[in-house]
Design a protein around this nucleic acid. Structure first.
Length: 426
RNA sequence: GGAGGAGUGGCAGAGCUGGUUUAAUGCACUAGUCUUGAAAACUAGCGUGCGGCAACGUACCGGGGGUUCGAAUCCCUCCUCCUCCGCCA
């Protein structure tokens, strides 16, 4: 969430941010409510501070009087305390109510987009940041989409997933399973080379962790929830990895912190059935290698560039045609200030598929998590958090098998052959 | 799952028969003195949030609630950890 002090001092920027995101005009009223509630909060607290101070002083005196046996004087002071308590009345409850309301309203305000982000409603307004500079691959008319290739070569089985679980839970088998494992290992190794510490996190998280990254409150109903245990299945490794440092004050010398982790990701994708979701294009469970960074504010955009380069290198090595989009305001996630999406071209489906999303959240997540560091002046500052997929597997697999299909079989990209131990799927 | 014990500031660890505890003390850390330099010693500082220009005030001793003039200390409840037993990959 945004810092109160930031909203106070930069109200115009916050309003402009809402406009960039094409939020309904009414949302701006929330800003005024927040500022007003904050004033109420301050005056309530100042009042209570004074009154509590009076009670503390009186109580101390009562203790002294009891020790020296002056019962009557002590009792007189007790009455004094009673009067102060009457003055306090219901103000303590008011203060907690005000604070809770304030928090709830702050949860409704999304991050302020970086100034380069253009106003826009949906993915149609996204800007092309780096276009694909080659000719789009042509496969010929007999090219098959990945769900047909999967059947032909027995790579994954959606019907079996339906039998075991339900729609959107693919089961990989044979060379399809090995390709999956090869990609995970390749991506983890590449992250390792770039200095990311590998983590194997829990796949279920508590409410506090969900709030920390901005995944909760979950208005979209994206997360699977275990009511009996009050836990959520992770929609991405971002949630457990980022929350490692929730509530911590990090040593300046330890920054930047770079983490990576492979996890399955679970997404309900409520109400998303229909065209363009066949095969692996959109599933409830998929594998992903995530990279997460904690950075000093002045370094975070350089870090974002590094992450872009990282993903670029992966896609280049895999030989997949890709482009990079800069998301418009309306397509940005709630917590993000700037997001780049990588899209890979599926030659068989003749369309672009999103395979990676790289974002800078600035202090939006760290303010929720209270993740700070002490700078050289010993002042505590919120860190900037960033994350990106490097990479999400399901669609990468779809593109690899579609784009590399030949009459003799599917060619495995060279960089993966050391991992798969085979060169062709045939 | 059963029985018992415990959760205090970065760490260790007092306080826990309610009132100079505004949480002792030690270690670690930071700055200074001393030193050719370092170590040692000495001096000072050293948790977090909120309000305030500041002095300072206030809240926080696992979370929440209660009793009381006053709660780290008493009561209720939840969570977590440890020990023993049982079960199990």
């Amino acid at each position: 969430m945004l810092e109160l002090s930031f909203i106070q001092e930069n109200k115009e920027k916050v309003l402009k941010g809402l406009e960039t995101r094409c939020y309904p005009a009414e949302t701006s009223q929330i800003i005024d409510q927040i500022l007003e509630l904050n004033e109420q909060r301050k005056s309530l607290q100042s009042f209570l501070d004074v009154k509590r101070g009076e009670i503390n002083t009186l109580s101390g005196q009562i203790g002294g009087l009891f020790k020296s046996g002056k019962q009557e004087e002590a009792n007189a002071l007790k009455e004094e305390v009673g009067k102060v308590k009457e003055e306090i009345g219901g103000k303590e409850g008011q203060l907690t109510d005000t604070e809770n309301q304030l928090t709830q309203l702050l949860y409704k305000i999304p991050n302020v987009p970086n100034e380069v982000v253009v106003k826009g409603k949906s993915d149609e307004d996204n800007e092309i940041h780096i276009p694909y500079d080659g000719p789009l691959p042509e496969l010929g008319d007999d090219a098959k989409p990945h769900w047909e290739l999967a059947k032909q070569y027995n790579l994954f089985d959606l019907e079996l997933g339906v039998k075991i679980t339900g729609a959107g839970f693919p089961l990989y088998r044979g060379k399809g399973a090995k390709l999956e494992r090869a990609l995970i290992n390749y991506f983890l190794d590449e992250a390792d080379k770039r200095g990311y510490e590998e983590i194997v996190p829990p796949l279920l998280v508590n409410e506090a962790s969900g709030i920390g990254t901005g995944s909760l409150p979950d208005k979209e109903g994206q997360m699977y929830y275990m009511e009996k245990d009050d836990l959520y299945l992770i929609p991405t490794a971002e949630v457990p990895l980022t929350n490692i440092y929730r509530g911590d004050i990090i040593n300046e010398a330890d920054l930047p912190i770079k983490l990576t982790g492979y996890t399955p990701c679970f997404r309900r994708e409520a109400g998303s059935y229909g065209a363009h979701v066949r095969g692996l294009n959109r599933v409830h469970q998929f594998n992903k290698v995530e990279i997460v960074r904690f950075e000093k504010p002045e370094n975070s955009y350089a870090a974002l560039e590094e992450m872009l380069q990282h993903v670029t290198d992966l896609l280049t090595a895999l030989g997949l045609p890709f482009r990079v989009l800069r998301l418009c305001g309306g397509d940005l996630t709630f917590a993000s200030a700037l997001t780049y999406d990588f899209e890979v071209y599926s030659a068989a489906q003749k369309r672009w598929l999103e395979v990676s999303s790289v974002s800078n959240f600035e202090t939006f997540q760290s303010n929720r998590m209270k993740t700070r560091y002490k700078d050289s002046d010993k002042k505590k500052q919120l860190v900037h958090t960033l994350n990106g997929s490097a990479l999400a597997l399901a669609r990468i697999v779809a593109c690899i098998i579609e784009n590399n299909q030949t009459s003799a079989g599917i060619k495995i990209p060279e960089v993966l052959q050391a991992y798969t131990k085979f060169e062709m799927i045939d």
